[in-house]
Design a protein around this nucleic acid. Structure first.
Lengths: 154, 154
DNA sequence: TAAATTCCTATGGGATTACTAGGAATATGG
DNA sequence: CCATATTCCTAGTAATCCCATAGGAATTTA
């Protein structure tokens, strides 16, 4: 339960990799982190739209963080991939149903949300990307990712 | 993100209803809580297998809690519907990948799990079913549930 | 100018979700 | 004793989401 989508896990591993490498191409990140290269392209693009990474096109280009990793709270990453934190429809909006502010289930879910939110705000990308890691582990859904060759080095 | 399945929301509302009514048939719970009657049958059955409710078949039968609501932590209900709390595969099992105990992402997800778990253990069904509620609110996915007639009273 | 790269759109298979349908088994009240 | 209320069981299904894959256009540089 409360399974985190592979997409979000990939995003986090990719960003941790970028934090450590200082910037890299999608293909090389994918190779290093064992993620489908084409799929990762879309993820990085989404992270760019969210203002977490920036990119350079063309030969020698790639992605890099817009800020130091220590200034990127995990909640921002998760929100970029999955949108607002909302376990049930009526969280943060007591007008959804007639019980409104007095609804106990709503308070319960609100408490869950607050709990998760506070944790995700308390951790940042630098905490995750710190030594002595080289390869960032984690399992997604893909067992046999496309072996796109990542040629050349920067 | 972290959307809670309608099924789990239904289960909680149904149990809160049972806590307040002292026991009722699936059809009447469904009517009172605006949940599809047939769908709710399956949910209550699942809760029975988990030892949270018990049932009497036949005329005059229905479902009731096996224990006082105050002795049913919310985590037990959620676990009954969705299984173990496991945001990622490697949580609680560092042997899943080679990084094992030193994997930072794993520690991160472990922290998230602990945070959610601790909250769900801190709230029980009685907290949720308390006054002054009559109808328990909450929205699921069904907009037009089957209007199964719940005839008769106990 | 060829190669490396991001960027864009479309498609598809598999799994899950939220039911719906039908009826068998069982107990009770009248 | 039997009609009725109830749980219990199994199967199907439409819609949605997830995790990619595929192909190529646009862009930049060595």
């Amino acid at each position: 339960m409360f399974q985190v989508p592979a997409k979000t896990q990939y995003a986090i591993r990719a960003l941790a990799h970028l934090a450590r490498s200082g910037g890299d191409s999608a293909a090389r990140v994918a190779l290093a982190q064992n993620i489908s290269a084409k799929y990762l392209e879309g993820i990085l693009n989404q992270l760019k739209l969210a203002g977490i990474v920036t990119s350079d096109r063309g030969r020698g280009g790639g992605y890099r963080l817009t800020r130091p990793a220590s200034e990127i709270p995990m909640i921002e990453i998760v929100a970029a991939m999955e949108g607002e934190l909302k376990p049930v429809e009526c969280v943060d909006d007591s007008s959804v149903c007639s019980r409104g502010a007095f609804c106990m289930p709503r308070k319960f879910w609100q408490g869950l949300k607050d709990s998760v939110e506070s944790y995700l705000k308390s951790v940042n990308l630098a905490d995750l990307a710190e030594e002595p890691l080289i390869t960032i582990c984690g399992t997604g859904k893909n067992k046999n990712p496309t072996k796109t060759e990542a040629k050349g080095a920067r």
